[in-house]
Design a protein around this nucleic acid. Structure first.
Lengths: 123, 123
DNA sequence: TGTTGTAACTTTGTATCACAAAGGAATCAA
DNA sequence: TTGATTCCTTTGTGATACAAAGTTACAACA
């Protein structure tokens, strides 16, 4: 269980943990063929500049690969998860699950009961 | 289902989402009586200054309450989750669970199989 | 053939944030 | 009483998120 030696929270890969990037990676992991910049932008509800910046971070972390075809008006950037990226994402999700269950244990509720434990119960 | 109108990621309360603060809040939610600064510090693996700063953020978000008794060397700060904080944390966990399951769905694995899907299977 | 428009990003500027080093503040030990 | 110790806070710095402005190339029209 060496994964628990370090505090669990340090396992949460920062490059993925940021909400916008979590959205990006989640969306990408379902698309083996990759996704265009514009599609990703609208599906994740991000601005151009914002998406651009986040993609740069993810690319520098070798989590995604950018394939830019053409230039100027006709350019098209295809964003794809790398094998390493997918692996990192799996690890991230595993850590996330442990964090989540740790919290639910501490609260002594099981995930099944979570919605009803909320103040304004969600339909 | 108004909670799904906004992109799911925006539901991840920033003041809680940061890993160190997630650690703090998770640790606190199990302690109705609250926890001392020093205990929290060592259990979350944070430095003095760092914990101080994070507690300030959480206090400003009304997620925790700080009870400082005494001054100087003998002072003792007791950190407690507020009712609102507990509520916010539950909502956060609910969102987190949705994010997690959304990702697992996209990957077409169920959470049970997650450990074995990892590159270096965790014992 | 310019020149205006537009699509698809990138870069830049600003405001916020995380972190740890340095700084109180009160007490204790010699 | 002065130097060490405990328990935090503040400050300084480097990183980050965001959107406004910029860039590049093509397209359509006069």
């Amino acid at each position: 269980m060496e994964i628990l030696d370090k505090p669990l929270w340090n396992e949460l890969e920062k490059s993925i943990h940021e909400p916008a990037r979590l959205a990006i990676v989640t969306r990408l992991c379902a698309e083996k063929a990759g996704l265009g910049f514009q599609d990703l932008k609208s599906e994740c509800g991000l601005t151009d500049g914002n998406l651009s910046r986040h993609l740069k971070v993810l690319e520098e972390a070798s989590i995604i690969h950018l394939d830019k075809v053409g230039k100027g008006r006709k350019s098209h950037t295809c964003v794809k998860l790398t094998p390493d990226g997918r692996e990192a994402f799996l690890r991230y999700l595993y850590s996330l699950e442990k964090v989540l269950h740790g919290a639910l244990d501490a609260l002594e509720i099981n995930s099944h009961d979570l919605p009803s434990a909320l103040p304004l119960a969600v339909s």
